[in-house]
Write a protein that binds this DNA or RNA. Structure first.
Length: 519
RNA sequence: GGCCCCGUAGCUCAGCGGUUAGAGCAGUCGACUCAUAAUCGAUUGGUCCCUGGUUCGAAUCCAGGCGGGGCUACCA
């Protein structure tokens, strides 16, 4: 996040491999992708990580049901995530799978280290055991079910087993200090408060191993009868992936993007384990909220789940970039849920993308084609009037705004700061009326200046929008006869006024975002 | 039960002690024609949830209430 550090490491959670990808996975991954693209554009050495979490006990069960080994089943489903992300143009630099040796071998090392430091110790876990499901129920759940199995209604039994525990309780003060001294560590603030509140209630040591996992998962070092609890296993992915000579400099992560349901693990257990390992802490855990669908909670019974098929429909009808725009401008980055609604999607698409951005690009390129035969006219410096100066100043101010906002993960506001430049172009055209000047041969120089200003402001806006709209902005650059290497950018420099060259070829092209009728 | 967040224009939200409370979208009126029935301007619209308090001054701070939501640790 800090501007003076030219590296950026962003992660998504690793996704439960039994899940089918849906809007939740795609949202978080899209956000991470947007941040990663922004930082590459900025010139930062960027590392964007996503992957799958594979060692849950249920993976074994489901695999068995389907007639596969756990590994085969995990391979297959991890493949679905990988294909999905590829199809959606995600620019992740790696895809970590917790069943990979590069992960498991390192997790063992870390746990070994924690055993040696005394942060992990053998203890006894006592809880309500449901023999039918072969699993423990948390105290509140057990109470809720009246101490009976929700499956076969048999009484739960009090069972004790030996597990390895992590000394979470020892880190209560340091965690409190972390949250208090670094409010950015957990965002948004509402989430940070939740975490602080719960820490205040006191921290217990947490079991980090399980028995009887049937050989799936990571064996506890020195005790083959125990398996590293899947959550602990999973959290380590953020570090195992970069714990190599060529990547270690990426650590600590700049942002772990997560959803609100997994905040506790990321905001408390993860940093405590890193403290125990004496490793630097991530700079931020950003916990977004959920999507609801057409005003209602998503559920299978309502059939309103935004699944892959639904997402494909939106991509087909509106374009991938349009989906990215909706997700990143309307998404639940704050502490409340956001609505994914078709009518709203169409409204946002039409007003932001078709009417504002697409239309403005079309009118400007069209005028350059019509009045200057598709050759970029000269800027004619020194002839700048108040309106032109105003436009230039809005455009030149964009980078700083966008950069500040991206640092705060305020993606929607950053997009708006870029769109503001587009709106300024529309206003400028209205003020200067180039289409009228075009009828007067004596106004030719002024006409050229005006259109150059329009195109130049749009070029700068397009750079600010490129992380969210990578395909469409690249298409637009083609129309302007320019290209950018967005993989290794120099955004501050590119956003300087005067990037367009006199005489470069300009085309009108097809509408970037064709207007849609709501239906 | 405990802790936390939110309640500002029809909608989504910004403002978080100080000029006549703002933006985008939607609405209305007007203008324009380069453009994707687009754009530009003007404009309608608000007891800033309620009550009380602090203050020269509160949407903004405090207390209580009402309404909505979240969290309350071992299913990913």
């Amino acid at each position: 996040m800090p501007t003076n550090d030219p590296k950026f490491y962003v992660s998504t959670p690793i996704y439960y491999v039994n899940d089918r990808p849906h809007i939740g996975h795609i949202y978080t991954t899209t956000l991470a992708d947007v941040l990663a693209r922004y930082h590459r554009l900025r010139g930062d050495r960027t590392f964007f990580l996503t992957g799958t979490d594979e060692h849950a006990a249920k993976v074994v069960d489901t695999a068995k049901e389907k007639g596969f080994t756990a590994q085969q089943w995990a391979d297959q489903n991890a493949g679905v995530f990988q294909d999905t992300f590829k199809k959606l143009g995600m620019s992740n630099d790696d895809f970590i799978r917790t069943s990979q040796d590069r992960h498991t071998s390192r997790v063992k090392q870390y746990i070994q280290q924690l055993i040696e430091s005394g942060d992990v110790y053998a203890g006894e876990y006592e809880g309500w055991y449901d023999a039918g499901q072969e699993e423990y129920l948390p105290e509140n759940k057990a109470k809720e079910y009246d101490y009976r199995s929700p499956f076969n209604n048999k009484p739960l039994v009090r069972k004790v087993e030996t597990n390895y525990f992590f000394k979470l309780s020892a880190y209560q003060d340091r965690l409190t200090e972390l949250l208090n001294d670094h409010p950015q560590f957990v965002q948004p603030d509402a989430r940070r408060n939740e975490v602080l509140g719960r820490i205040r209630e006191g921290l217990n040591d947490v079991p980090i191993s399980r028995s009887g996992s049937g050989g799936w998962g990571i064996a506890m070092p020195g005790d083959e009868s125990q398996t590293v609890y899947v959550w602990i296993d999973a959290l380590f992915n953020y570090y195992t992936t970069v714990d190599t000579d060529d990547r270690r400099a990426f650590w600590p992560a700049d942002v772990h993007l997560i959803a609100k349901d997994i905040l506790w693990f990321h905001a408390v257990i993860w940093p405590a384990m890193l403290m125990a390992l004496d490793l630097p802490l991530p700079k931020q855990v950003y916990s977004h909220s959920f999507w609801i669908s057409e005003g209602q909670k998503m559920s299978k019974s309502l059939g309103n789940f935004i699944d892959l098929e639904k997402i494909d429909e939106y991509v087909d009808e509106f374009s991938l970039d349009a989906l990215r725009w909706y997700l990143s401008t309307q998404g639940p980055l704050g502490s409340t849920d956001s609505d994914f609604a078709h009518g709203k999607f169409v409204d946002v698409y039409n007003s932001d993308l078709a009417n504002t951005l697409g239309n403005c690009a079309a009118r400007v390129t069209n005028m350059i084609v019509r009045y200057f035969d598709g050759k970029m006219p000269a800027a004619a410096p020194g002839r700048e009037d108040a309106e032109a100066r105003q436009l230039r100043s809005v455009a030149m101010g964009m980078y700083e705004k966008v950069d500040t906002l991206y640092e705060k993960v305020a993606v929607a506001a950053a997009n708006d700061a870029a769109l503001e430049v587009v709106r300024a172009v529309d206003t400028f055209i209205e003020q200067t009326q180039p289409f009228k000047l075009a009828k007067d041969e004596s106004q030719r120089e002024r006409l050229g200046m005006i259109l150059y200003y329009c195109a130049e402001a749009l070029r700068i806006a397009s750079l600010g929008l490129s992380p969210v709209l990578p395909d469409k902005m690249a298409e637009f650059w083609q129309l302007l006869g320019i290209t950018y290497d967005t993989q290794a950018g120099d955004l501050a420099d590119w956003c300087q006024w005067g990037g367009l060259q006199l005489g470069s070829d300009v085309q009108k092209g097809a509408p970037l975002f064709p207007r849609k009728q709501d239906k």
